[in-house]
């Protein structure tokens, strides 16, 4: 079962006093020779996922296997060997060592593995020639362009001829001319039978991929009728981390917004009563829900798409909606008797 196999992967970490779960139950299989693009905006967990695949971060749950290696089960020394021999990483900011020449930068992973200096140097020179930098062997990073630095970084990632190559935003600091060369190089890596995972938010890279994995949960932007909910005390209206496409107005009862904290407790973000609204930022910005909404009493709420919500509130400015201005709905509570999950009649 060669290649990369991710099953039920959940990555969770504390950020300040709350918990973030950028990856929740991810399943993915990538055979050798395939290039997968992890697509999503900043903060959606692309880099975090790469860190787990590189054996640098531990996942909260689930498994990552590469060529039968269970990455999550590796101990410290075995992890170091895995990072060295199995994974090649191309970092977003190149991360070349400024005091070393191009050839020395490429040779570093080999020297760390106690490869004799002459062999390491010969291998580094060969790799740099492969990426088109035969005339830049003795240049230091400061004397190389962004594209050339990225080529050195790719050559370094290939020092041990790893079967898995991870690239984090490989075109982030490059102009369009430099991007062309790097894209061709990445494609060639996969063509050589490697599994290549590229994280990016740059949708221009889509044609590069054999497969695209969108990491950010997306709500639907399609028009839909309002969702009228009659909820009982304790019923959950939406959960933290879910995609969100509706803004809710409370007609009766009270809804509490709570955020999970790092110490397993919950922080009450807001309590919303009749005539007020909640959950507006996720659908407006396409972000996951940043808190869980649950009813603290029997309550009646209606969910609207952002467009319908604006109409319902008398067409306020987007700025007023974002800052949570004291807006009042024009209409009264719609009639209906649906329970949670049921649309109004």
């Amino acid at each position: 079962m060669n290649g990369l196999h991710i099953a039920g992967l959940t990555i969770e970490y504390s950020s300040g006093d709350y918990v973030v779960r950028p990856i929740d139950g991810l399943n993915l299989s990538v055979p050798p020779g395939e290039l997968v693009l992890l697509l999503g905006p900043s903060g959606c967990g692309k880099t975090t996922l790469l860190s787990v695949l590189a054996g640098i971060l531990k996942a909260h749950s689930g498994s990552v296997r590469f060529n039968e290696i269970n990455v999550g089960a590796l101990k410290e020394r075995a992890l170091t060997d895995y990072r060295r021999a199995t994974v090649g990483v191309v970092f977003q900011a190149f991360n070349l060592i400024p005091s070393l020449t191009a050839v020395e930068n490429v040779a570093v992973p080999l020297l760390a593995a106690k490869v004799p200096t002459s062999k390491a140097r010969a291998r580094a020179e060969a790799l740099l020639r492969e990426v088109g930098l035969a005339d830049r062997l003795t240049h230091k990073p400061a004397g190389l362009s962004g594209g050339q630095q990225q080529r050195v970084a790719i050559a370094r990632a290939l020092a041990h001829d790893p079967p898995l190559v991870l690239a984090d935003e490989p075109t982030a600091h490059l102009d369009y001319i430099q991007v062309e060369g790097i894209l061709r190089l990445l494609r060639e890596l996969a063509a050589a039978g490697r599994t290549v995972i590229v994280a990016t938010h740059d949708e221009r890279l889509l044609p590069l991929a054999d497969r695209i994995v969108e990491l950010a949960p997306k709500g639907t932007s399609k028009p839909r009728p309002p969702e009228h909910l009659v909820v009982g005390r304790g019923d959950i209206i939406f959960r933290q981390g879910e995609a969100g496409d509706l803004i809710f107005i409370v007609w009766r009862g009270e809804v509490e917004l709570v955020r999970a904290r790092g110490d397993n407790s919950e922080l009450v973000v807001d309590r919303v009563g009749p005539g007020r609204y909640f959950g507006e930022l996720a659908p407006i910005f396409g972000l996951p829900r940043s808190a869980t909404a649950h009813a603290t009493t029997d309550a009646v709420v209606t969910g609207y798409t952002p467009k319908d919500f604006r109409r319902q509130m008398g067409s306020p400015s987007m700025a007023d909606m974002i800052i949570g201005a004291d807006l009042q709905p024009l209409d009264h509570e719609p009639t209906g008797t649906g329970r949670i999950g049921q649309e109004s009649s």
């Binding site: 895995y82 990072r83 060295r84 992973p109």
Partner: peptide, 16 residues
């Protein structure tokens, strides 16, 4: 610090 992080991420042991 960043250099050390890169070296570790590329498999250099702490001892080195």
């Amino acid at each position: 610090t960043r250099d050390f992080a890169v070296l570790k991420a590329t498999g250099a042991p702490n001892r080195s």
